[in-house]
Amino acid sequence: MTDHYETLGVARDAGQDEIKKAYRRLARELHPDVNPSADAAERFKDVTHAYDVLGDAQSRAEYDRGPQPGMSGFGFGDIFEQFFGGGGRGQGPRPRRQPGQDSLLRVDLELGDVVFGVHRELRVQTAVLCSTCDGACTAPGTREERCTMCGGSGHVQRQVRSLLGNVVTSQPCQVCQGHGTVIPSPCPTCAGHGRVRAERTIPVDIPAGVDTGLRIQLPGQGEVGEAGGPAGTLYLEVNVKHHDVFSRSGDDLLGTLEVSMPDAALGTRTTVEAIDGPVDVEVKPGVQSGDVITIGGRGVTRLRGAGRGDLRLGVHVVTPTRLDRRSEELLRELRERTKAPAPSLGEFKQGLFAKMRDRLRL
């Protein structure tokens, strides 16, 4: 605890006039208008506080009494501090080296990227280790020095008068910011922080099967901490962009296969271009709109597990809208030959509407 008599530079038996003269002399020397240094400002506060205690006869008498008998060396103010907090008794200096913060980066992927996975070189703006001081925060050839204000403890203690008596408080030292050391010559590159802002290129292998909203965790790829502290975690938030032909449902790929009315009636074989290349498709005779043709193993690679999902093609039978006279004659003849019934209300079929919903999802 700071000795107020020592702060004012007077003996313990000094008279009130001597205490007042000592305060005025020091106040003129340390006042911020006369001495703008940070050290002078801190001492000015200490001197003013010391005079507040010793300049009043009653508070000086309480201060002189100090710890009371039977209290094992602790005054009432010390007990108050223990229960209500003094901010630093028994604490050491605050480490200058701190862990870095985590970062979040959005990554846009094509649908094809998630089928088999993709390698990306990501460029990010982040905090990196200062190459000049290597995180030491000091200029080359210099080092940190012990703080003379707190003696390296990182905290300063003050005795404050209150209704409960003298309360001893402990606060972080304002000169060293609680670190216990000061940096007389900060690194010119990082200004004493041990890190700088820079652009980094991070190679990333994005696994197959990821989907929008999933976060990939990269420990140690976030921001470097103060004074070269360990880097945080970089989180990559995946966003799969819209595809004009295919959409995704779990590990399956969904698409629409447009089939002409004759091919739907007679059946046909065709080849379509899937995400990963051509695939043969068989359209069976009599296929209806809403039917689904499944090609196994041509979907998305499973994120957890082996194999791939399926490619599911919803059939859309295309009815011709422009017919020449001969085509109309043939269709009329077909209608007569197949004895096609006239349109009418039939039995309600839930499955039909399920197919319609599936079609809308495609």
Rank of each mutant, 00 (worst) to 15 (best):
M1L: 12
H4W: 11
Y5K: 03
E6K: 14
L8Y: 04
G15F: 01
Q16E: 14
E18S: 12
K20W: 12
Y23F: 15
R24F: 13
A27P: 00
E29V: 05
D33M: 09
D33F: 10
D33G: 11
V34G: 07
N35G: 02
P36M: 02
A38H: 06
D39K: 08
D39Q: 10
E42S: 12
R43H: 07
D46T: 00
H49E: 15
A50C: 07
V53P: 01
D56W: 02
R60F: 08
E62T: 13
Q68Y: 10
P69H: 07
G73W: 10
F74S: 14
F76D: 09
G77F: 01
F80V: 14
E81I: 09
E81R: 14
G88E: 07
R89Y: 13
G90D: 08
P93Y: 03
R94E: 15
P95T: 08
S103N: 09
D108G: 12
E110C: 13
D113V: 08
H119M: 12
R120T: 01
L129G: 00
D134A: 13
D134W: 11
G135V: 01
A139E: 15
A139P: 07
A139W: 10
G141P: 03
R146D: 13
R146L: 15
C147Q: 04
T148P: 05
G151F: 00
G152W: 03
R158K: 11
V160Y: 10
L163N: 11
G165T: 04
C173T: 01
Q174P: 14
C176Q: 01
G178I: 03
T181Y: 11
V182Y: 03
P184V: 13
P186D: 15
A191N: 12
V204H: 05
V204W: 04
L214Y: 15
I216A: 12
G220P: 09
E226I: 06
G228D: 05
G229Q: 02
G232I: 06
G232W: 03
G232K: 06
E237F: 06
V238K: 01
N239H: 14
K241F: 04
K241H: 09
K241Y: 02
H242P: 10
V245N: 02
F246N: 04
R248M: 14
S249Q: 15
G250P: 07
L253W: 03
L253E: 06
L253I: 13
T256Y: 08
L257K: 05
M261H: 12
D263C: 03
T268N: 08
V272G: 01
A274Y: 04
G277M: 06
P278K: 04
V281M: 03
V283M: 07
V287D: 06
S289A: 10
V292D: 05
I295N: 06
G296W: 02
G297A: 04
R298D: 12
T301W: 06
R302L: 09
G307T: 12
L311K: 00
G314W: 00
G314Q: 09
T321H: 09
E329P: 00
L330V: 03
L330H: 07
L331A: 13
R332Y: 09
E333G: 11
P341H: 06
P343H: 11
L345M: 13
G346K: 05
G351T: 07
F353E: 04
A354V: 14
R357G: 07
R357S: 09
R359L: 15
